[in-house]
Design a protein around this nucleic acid. Structure first.
Lengths: 226, 226
DNA sequence: CCCGTTCGTCACAAAGTTGTCACTGGTTTG
DNA sequence: CAAACCAGTGACAACTTTGTGACGAACGGG
């Protein structure tokens, strides 16, 4: 189930949202101020962020902008909580980059509906990401090209697809079976060790860029953006 | 800045899009139904059209087809708004000629990103470019002429079309199937190896200029400008 | 109506890719 | 502390994919 980061300085509000999210089966991470929010967003890479506009020190708008600037977090949908209806226009304006908003005080039911809506929306469109950049690694899907440290790296079709799928699902572990389904489009016809071999070849070719490819022992592989 | 035509029968949606576009510095023209959309598209020749699929009277698909039929508007990129995810395939089908889509309800941020993406693609590819130059290779589409190293090279009709399409989509890999669709305008009637043969003939004729024609093993062919 | 050009198909060889396997060394588990 | 487990590695043979030469059908201009 999806992981959600809740950012609000009022403990009561956090608790209310957290309770509702957990009841609905979501995994929840919380933060009470802007700095903590940024740190946790980068560390846990949630699927969605619920962000209060009014925060001590670094305010919600600033957090929003910073999240958008970092490629690791730029794609995460943000749902703003705001007390002032008048702020709405600015919140939804491009410069700020929120995806939706709920005005305080909110009804938990409405909040849940909006969260689910955003997640559904994203899952249909996320696969369209065409060009991704992680540090010195640039992956251009339509051009079918990969650059590491400014140098062009040639990948075979299978290697490219494997890397693309891992990168699109960055932060989340993919089991060997899952990868076989999605990259090879077979159903258990192929040995799962095949995945290992291809990961090895990818790592060889990526050189220093191989640091993005994590092995999760007993589970599978994961692409890390950091 | 670019001019954008927004077509939707719901005033709220129009207003939301219009606000965001204007905040981002775009010029906006609006229309509430198909007939008005066609009239304004022809009159103001926008750089991009945001078109709702569900419109009263003449529906979005019909508007799309009509816009494509008229040479004055045929080249304008169209971004479809659709409520049904199931419609997507038909919308993006070549027959309908939409360039991208966003499902309703949409997040303004995503819509903006897609609009900017489409505009960027247009301006860099500039598919309307009638005369392209890549190093010592000059391709003049209306004159139907190709010059390599200052020397005129004669191409057959098919060869010319193949080269033109590849050059217009430079940087992006085109699969054999895609090329058959766009160059030959057939649907799977022809052997895909035909593409290979024509690429060979192109390479022979281009001589040194053949360095622009990349083979991407397992995927297709790509034109590189460098 | 004939001849040269163009075009799609085919078969074959060369080149590149891919799945498998056995082995190794490290890590977890009972 | 040994057995079981698991991921990394090198090698390799089978398989795909692409380039190439050749051929006959279709076309169009003279």
């Amino acid at each position: 189930m999806a992981k959600i980061l809740v950012v609000d300085d009022e403990p009561d509000a956090v608790e209310l949202i957290e309770f509702n999210l957990k009841s609905a089966g979501f995994e929840v991470v919380t933060a009470a101020d802007g700095a903590e929010a940024l740190k946790k967003a980068r560390a846990s890479l949630p699927d969605l962020i619920v962000l209060d506009l009014m925060l001590p020190e670094v305010d919600g708008l600033e957090v929003c902008k910073l999240l958008r600037r970092d490629t690791a977090t730029a794609g995460i949908p943000i749902l703003m909580l705001t007390a002032k209806a008048a702020e709405i226009d600015r919140v939804l304006g491009l410069e700020l980059g929120a995806d939706d908003y709920v005005t305080k005080p909110f009804s938990p039911r409405e909040l849940m509906l909006r969260i689910k809506g955003l997640l559904r929306r994203r899952s249909t469109t996320e696969s369209k990401a065409e060009r991704m950049q992680f540090g010195d690694l640039i992956l251009d899907v339509p051009a079918h090209s990969l650059t590491v440290n400014g140098k062009r790296v040639e990948l075979t079709a299978t290697e490219f697809k494997l890397l693309t799928i891992l990168a699109q699902r960055r932060g989340r572990v993919q089991s060997r079976d899952q990868l076989l389904k999605d990259v090879w489009e077979y159903d258990n016809v192929i040995d799962t060790r095949t995945v290992d071999t291809h990961m090895r070849r990818l790592r060889e070719k990526l050189g220093k860029g191989a640091k993005h490819l994590d092995t999760v022992r007993g589970v599978g592989y994961r692409f890390v953006a950091g």
